[in-house]
Design a protein around this nucleic acid. Structure first.
Lengths: 215, 215
DNA sequence: CGCTCGCTTGATATAGCTCAAAAGCTGTGG
DNA sequence: CCACAGCTTTTGAGCTATATCAAGCGAGCG
């Protein structure tokens, strides 16, 4: 884990973005650390020390095959918790997608967090298993639609949504190539379902059409 | 949930197959129920009442799309625990694959099982996320190899393994059609990697080859 | 202004799907 | 014990969605 204070983000902005509690249940202060876009939070095989809550930014969780094929198993956005995925050692990599601030919850000897963690773990498990249906049984356009509907829901179901991740990330999340992702997005734009305001900001103009594509 | 005492299996056999404890931690007896092949254990949307431990038999957990496409998210074998996947309502269906006996653990008011369930939930979550890599990024032959290696490992890494599920089930687990599953298995047989002793019993003759296919 | 890097678009290839038919199993009844 | 029906599985032939390969394009940066 290599936290870095991101010098590109002014300190006033970082501190302004800190609405969540700064102490854990046991009264200890929870350290906040910053990560550059692309920097590693933890690696596969690392011994688990902590779990993390995202203060701002976005994180990708992924696995690799020997030849470099990558599967992103989850994206996590501001307010979400991740990193409790293992018994002793992580099975996945976690990286910041954009400049990200994390609160790190270290395990405290003698304090059992099972009760708070179980619902998070269950949510996460259900999410992964639902995603399995998307990747295993849906077409390219259905996968993209499901992804956009999910991202919109997690951003309060506003018409404008932000996609902090690259096309490659989206492809690796949905089990598609970058070209297919791009073609499907263009097709949805041409049909008037989406409108792009730059690459990472998009407007959903026909939410109903999109939703109907997920079945 | 519609448990049925399977009249095809003599009672002496059923009772002989009961090595696991018959009382829960809180001292209550844990009821054992039997399910026919194909019968439903719980359905999507049902309110969660219990979790289950498999005494003998096998179970499939799955989701459906509106048009009938199915994704099996997990198979569970004898000795394994399942059914704790939800907050209030199940997100999936569970069915017996073959005649199956289950111990049902009902929640006991005032007794918090988080501590025992958390590791199970985490294992299950990691399993689902690892399966995502298989389905999202591996070829048909790699998926089948990964599946067989996993089944072998769960059956004590013996050369002989049993596949209680149909080809259709395997396809729906791996995101493949039944024809592709069949063709790949035939190809592995022709290469001398596998040998079939009937449809559901197979011998792994070149475990190393199989393992190398998973990368 | 011109490079770079991520994205888009186009042309072609192919893994796996679909449709079709044959071949095994399993159970039933004569 | 055999024959037949209703399955599941295997095999074959052709098709298609998506991958791959190959240019262009455009926004951000030095």
């Amino acid at each position: 884990m290599n936290a870095i204070v991101d010098t590109r983000v002014p300190f006033e902005i970082l501190t302004a973005l800190t609405p969540r509690p700064e102490v854990a249940n046991d009264g200890r202060p929870v350290p906040l650390s910053f990560f550059h876009a692309g920097s590693e939070i933890y690696a596969q095989g690392e011994k688990v020390a902590s779990h993390y809550q995202i203060e701002f930014g976005a994180v990708r969780i992924y696995r690799l095959l020997a030849d470099g094929r990558r599967q992103i198993t989850a994206f996590h956005l501001a307010g979400e918790t991740f990193g409790f995925e293992a018994d002793l050692a992580h099975h996945f990599f976690a990286e910041a997608i954009v400049t990200t601030g994390l609160r790190t919850f270290r395990p405290v000897a003698g304090l059992d967090r099972s009760r708070e963690l179980l619902p998070l773990a269950l949510r996460c498990m259900v999410r992964a298993q639902e995603h399995l249906l998307v990747v295993g049984r849906q077409t390219a356009i259905e996968r993209i639609a499901a992804f956009l509907v999910d991202m919109a829901a997690r951003q309060g179901d506003l018409a404008q949504i932000e996609l902090p991740m690259s096309r490659q990330d989206i492809g690796d999340y949905l089990g598609l190539t970058i070209e297919t992702v791009s073609r499907v997005l263009s097709r949805l734009r041409d049909k008037g379902v989406l409108k792009f305001h730059g690459l990472r900001l998009l407007e959903i103009r026909k939410a109903e059409t999109l939703r109907s594509l997920c079945e």
